[in-house]
Amino acid sequence: MELVIDRVSKQYKNKIAVDRISLKLEKGIYGLLGANGAGKTTLMRMLCGILTPTSGTISYDGIDVSEEEYRAVLGYLPQDFGYYPDFTGKDFLLYMAALKGIGKSEARKKVKELLELVSLTDVAKKKIKTYSGGMKQRLGIAQALLNDPQILILDEPTAGLDPKERVRFRNLIAQLGKDNIVILSTHIVSDIDRIADRILMMNGGSLVFDGTREDITGDLEEFYLQEFGEGEVE
């Protein structure tokens, strides 16, 4: 199980959004930190195959990112995603299951499990337009997990969740990270602090730090601020 990111870049006209990033990722949780505009979302989109790199390659166990087999093992939760307001939560998950190639009976079983996992069973038959922000986010998490992904990419997954839900989610991710590759991008440093096996920091499209928690002495947030030249937090 190895996700290889080899000298991947993304350039838009005069701006380099991602600048020659190379990584080899195995099982575990990778926390991706960086300021707004650092290139995190661009990198994640390239890892999901919804944005083509300007140069470089991305492959998983030899399967290129553009292939269907790659997408079959992928789960993605975007930062700002849409939905179909008149679909029920259950409908939405069944639809996503169909997109992921999951058979009907298996899909029904999986959807039931996931709805329970994200505590949406009671509102499964209600239309998504009636959901609160947190409920929509939990639905998003559920759809990312439908196909038991080996690569799970989460962009700001805990936005909109209350502290209790955030803790539950962290525990879930920690569990998933034992057997799969989880890339987690967030501004909530404490989320990464507690569960990430490896920390990646991006700035201006480049990878400025790649290490474990042990490589960082002291508070992660202070280290982050120092890395980005913000000085100490008062």
């Binding site: 269907e68 992928l74 700002d80 995603f81 997109l99």
Partner: peptide, 21 residues
């Protein structure tokens, strides 16, 4: 509508998102 609703990013990264869909 997939673009206006921003469901395109969900769909396109799925197995059938670029083919069967």
């Amino acid at each position: 509508e997939e673009h206006t609703r921003k469901t395109d990013q969900l769909i396109l990264c799925t197995r059938y998102g670029r083919t069967k869909v």
